[in-house]
């Protein structure tokens, strides 16, 4: 079975491309022969039922699967045309260019300032205290958190509310000035108001970064993304403009899933 790619999608520059990618956990094939182009200036949403492999695929885009000993990736994934799984690829550099925000907000048990400064410090992106301050402020502003935390940068990041923590994690991710931001169900632990703030933030970041978001909420995918890929049983069933996927999907399985007839 081949992925149905909507023919009416405008051509867009591909930031990342996957070609015939399969991911195994031990003997289990979690991703089966997936090919997709992630465009530079759009938000791409991965939707699909639990266990369909969308998170696994997302984690293979910045090689986070490397941290799982039994995981194995086949096929080719490129970032700006460079194969990220080639042996010379520096994983550290890759992850600086392809940032990630997780399902559960995971600020480090450090101060808000230190959380944001973490990435710039380990990558040596700021040459002095003043420059670091600037990066931290800029990142917090972009993440829409500056007004709420500017007077308590020394407080622990874990003392913030769930939604603030998640925005702190986004600020932390953008502090190293990545090109792609991967988000793995970033709002699943948040209430609707905090979710709306994150969605607004994604909207604002759209255009500056290629954003890939995995979400269980189809409404969320519809609200924040311009491209949607529907994953099912480790394959991408259908990939197209979000507006098309949600109003007029071509594949029966996509339609059944998004209209709530799945299973």
């Amino acid at each position: 079975m081949v992925t149905v790619v909507h023919p009416n999608m405008e051509k867009a520059d591909a930031k990342m491309s996957a070609r015939d990618v399969s991911v195994y956990y031990g003997d289990k094939k979690a991703i089966d022969d997936v090919s997709i182009d992630i465009p530079t200036k759009y938000v791409t949403a991965f939707i699909g039922p639990s266990g369909c492999g969308k998170s696994t695929f997302l984690r293979s885009l910045n090689r986070m699967n490397d941290t799982i000993p039994s995981a194995r990736v086949e096929g080719e994934i490129t970032l700006d045309g460079e194969d990220i799984y080639r042996s010379k690829m520096d994983v550290v550099q890759l992850r600086a260019r392809v940032g990630m925000v997780f399902q559960k907000p995971n600020p480090f048990p450090k101060s808000i300032y230190e959380n944001v400064a973490y990435g710039p410090k380990i990558h040596g992106l700021a040459s002095g205290k003043a420059e670091l301050d600037e990066v931290v402020e800029k990142s917090l502003r972009r993440a829409g958190l500056w007004a709420e935390v500017s007077d308590r940068l020394d407080d622990s990041g874990t003392a913030l509310s769930g939604g603030q923590q998640q925005r702190l994690c986004i600020a932390r991710a953008i502090a190293v000035d990545p090109e792609v931001i991967l988000m793995d169900e970033p709002c699943s632990a948040l209430d609707p108001i905090a979710t709306a703030k994150i969605e607004e933030l994604i909207d604002e970041l759209n255009g500056s970064y290629a954003i890939v978001i995995v979400t269980h909420s189809m409404q969320q995918a519809a609200r924040v993304s311009q491209r949607t890929a529907f994953f099912h049983l480790g394959k991408i069933v259908e990939y197209g403009r979000t507006s098309d996927i949600f109003t007029n999907p071509l594949e029966e399985r996509t339609k059944d899933y998004i209209t709530g007839r799945y299973g």
């Binding site: 189809m218 409404q219 519809a222 949600f246 109003t247 007029n248 999907p249 996509t254 998004i258 209209t259």
Partner: peptide, 10 residues
């Protein structure tokens, strides 16, 4: 209440 999608919405 149901947030219909795709053919349901149409």
């Amino acid at each position: 209440l149901r947030a219909p999608m795709a053919d349901d919405l149409r």
